[in-house]
């Protein structure tokens, strides 16, 4: 066997391993609250908003690792969310949140929250316009 063939075989083997890795449940999906509720226990990403009509519950003195709030999405789904970690500080301000986790029977058990906040995006023109119009004068 030629050595270039050996190399090719190695490359092909690596590709196959790569493909297996890719396909073998190594990705999750973006879901809606509704579809996540139909698949409890499945790891999903939810894109949602915080339901501001309900209180955000976080008392770091009692338990710094318990945050709960309600989230809604654009399709009208609604769920309670429990995040066993500290409260991301700009949570209330965020316009949109991406949550990773699993749906259980009565709440969404969240592992990670990614915030999309207007303040993080300094280049956002609207935000600058807001700042300007808030200037005294």
């Amino acid at each position: 066997m030629k050595r270039t063939h050996i190399i090719l075989l190695i490359a092909i083997a690596a590709m196959i391993v790569g493909l297996i890795v890719f396909s073998a449940g190594d990705f999750s999906t973006y879901d809606t609250i509704g579809s996540a509720q139909q698949n409890p226990g499945k790891f999903v990403h939810l894109i949602a908003k915080i339901d501001r009509s309900q209180p955000i519950e976080y008392d770091p003195v009692k338990n710094p690792n318990y945050l709960s709030f309600y989230a809604t999405d654009s399709l009208g789904g609604r769920t309670k969310v429990i995040f066993r970690n500290s409260k991301p500080t700009d949570l209330e301000k965020s316009e949109r949140i991406v949550m990773k986790g699993k749906m259980t029977s009565d709440h969404f058990e969240c592992n990670d929250i990614l915030l999309k906040c207007p303040s993080k995006y300094k280049d956002d023109k609207k935000e600058l316009e807001k700042t300007i119009s808030n200037l005294p004068g």
């Binding site: 990705f27 999750s28 999906t29 973006y30 879901d31 790891f43 999903v44 990403h45 990773k100 592992n111």
Partner: peptide
């Protein structure tokens, strides 16, 4: 492709 693949857990 308009898919909705998200990063893994």
């Amino acid at each position: 492709f308009g898919t909705k693949i998200a990063p893994p857990e």
